[in-house]
């Protein structure tokens, strides 16, 4: 029931956002949170024995809080989802998904440090795609788009579904 309510809420948000994201600046975070959750449906990580799915948020506490609400009653497949705000980059290796906030200055350095590790890197800064972030979400003409750097993802052994690839605004191979 709650799930349906959230879905409806998200759906409404999505529709309204599509009409005018400018008017609903606060809801943009929520939409990005939902997007992130949806991305995980279409991405495969290498098999591991971890009991939980760890999502790390770097430099965006607000997004971390919003995402926690989105995952409040959701699991990642059979694993529980653990959302943590990362302050120390040393904690990053234990993450399965790393959201790099747009305020992060040394994104390329971070991505380079953990290149070829199966950590999906996502950012809401379009320009980070050139810093080897795997997916960047951005707003374009009142509509959310995303760019995928599949080359980096493939090197990290993270498989992005063709469904996600074909819906992307741009795919770097």
């Amino acid at each position: 029931m709650i799930r349906r309510t959230i879905f409806r809420t998200v759906f409404l948000i999505f529709v309204v956002t599509s009409l005018s994201t400018q008017l609903l600046a606060v809801s943009e975070t929520q939409i990005k949170a939902v997007f992130l959750e949806k991305f995980t449906h279409l991405i495969q990580w290498p098999e591991n024995n971890n009991s939980e799915f760890v999502i790390c948020i770097l430099n965006d506490d607000n997004f971390a809080q919003t995402l926690k609400k989105v995952y409040a009653e959701k699991d990642f497949h059979t694993k529980k989802v653990n959302i943590i705000s990362v302050l120390n980059p040393k904690d990053i290796p234990s993450c399965n998904l790393l959201f790099i906030g747009k305020n992060t200055r040394n994104a390329k350095k971070i991505t380079s440090s953990y290149a070829k590790k199966p950590i999906l890197t996502v950012s809401d800064h379009k320009g980070f795609i050139s810093d080897n972030v795997m997916i960047t979400i951005y707003l374009n003409k009142k509509r959310f788009n995303y760019i995928i750097n599949n080359k980096v993802a493939q090197e990290a052994n993270v498989k992005i579904s063709y469904l996600l690839l074909k819906s992307a605004q741009e795919v770097i191979k």
Binding site: F11, F14, S18, K38, L163, S167
Partner: peptide
């Protein structure tokens, strides 16, 4: 149906 996964997943009506 394959094509519809993404629109349905992201509630993309126009998609």
């Amino acid at each position: 149906a394959d094509y519809a996964v993404t629109p349905l997943l992201f509630s993309d009506l126009s998609g």
